[in-house]
Design a protein around this nucleic acid. Structure first.
Lengths: 163, 163
DNA sequence: TTGCTCCTCACGTCACGTGAGGTGGC
DNA sequence: TTGCTCCTCACGTCACGTGAGGTGGC
């Protein structure tokens, strides 16, 4: 019954959350879902965490960034128990990861297009900013403003803006 | 008081949503928030939409993809009325867009890193798949499996997986 | 004793999803 | 008359945020 807190650095929930870059509420929520468990508790009921918990949080953060839901993350963490053989667990993980890889690739592509469209919209807006035309917004983003280089079309997406 | 529905193609909410690629519920929700309004109503109370509404929905979709919340989108749509001068409205839009451009760039970067990490994790998993070692998952993703090319480190993020 | 952190409810938020029960319109 | 679409509540969901009211621990 002697104290045995001399093994590893022990943190309260605030410190853990701070280091991991998440909110205290998030940590408690992850606990509700069974994603993480305090290493121990203080006499007063405070949650106490060791290094492994910090690593767990990093993994959770990483998988979230990959686009996994907390439910999917829970499934990953229990992949071993829920699959008959280790081979089957590995296949499951490989399937999940390659699906997410496809999603990431798709996202990168759409963000690339997004970047170009925002860029051209910004160019138009900056031209408008230095333009004294009365038709400014009336002509929808200087669509027929003389100062706009000709040949530069108004993206269809923006024609509806500002009514 | 004569009927005047001979101007433009009129759609019911299901058709509109289908063409725009959103749910019927979403269209009604956008209406609640004041983002879109039916062109007219049928005698029985059905919402009827014209072409402008479809364009509106496309703009909403685009701005959402850019990372704008529905509240921010509403502010964009009312930028003109809420700003004293047109110049001020244009400056506001330029500010919003360039902020989102930064966010998009940041996202592209993190997704790039993500892609690399998932890729290397997948490579390891595929090696494990064709590996008969008993230590398979025990050694955490074949971390010390002889079949893994040496020099290929186990990403720290994955050391916690599968316990 | 003062301050700061922690605790447990429990309701709020965002962008819809999902029935329940009823009606329009071809 | 049958089927499909539409209507309005209204509660559910996901991943937490945000108090309320109370206690631990240096």
């Amino acid at each position: 019954m002697a104290r045995r807190n001399r093994r590893k650095p022990i943190m309260q929930i605030g410190a853990l959350a701070g280091v991991a870059g998440v909110s205290v509420r998030a940590v408690r929520y992850y606990e509700e879902l069974g994603l993480i468990q305090p290493t121990s508790h203080s006499q007063g009921g405070f949650r106490l965490y060791g290094e492994e918990c910090l690593k767990r949080l990093h993994v959770i953060n990483f998988l979230k960034e990959m686009g996994l839901s907390l439910t999917e993350i829970r499934q990953i963490f229990s992949a071993r128990q829920s699959h008959g053989s280790d081979k089957s667990a590995v296949r499951y993980l490989a399937a999940v990861f390659s699906e997410k890889l496809n999603l990431v690739n798709a996202k990168i592509e759409t963000l690339g297009r997004m970047k170009a469209e925002i860029g051209s919209a910004l160019k138009m807006l900056r031209t408008c900013e230095s333009c004294d035309h009365k038709v400014l917004l009336d002509s929808i983003f200087c669509g027929d403003c003389a100062l706009l280089e000709s040949g530069e079309a108004v993206p269809d997406t923006f024609k509806v803006l500002l009514q």
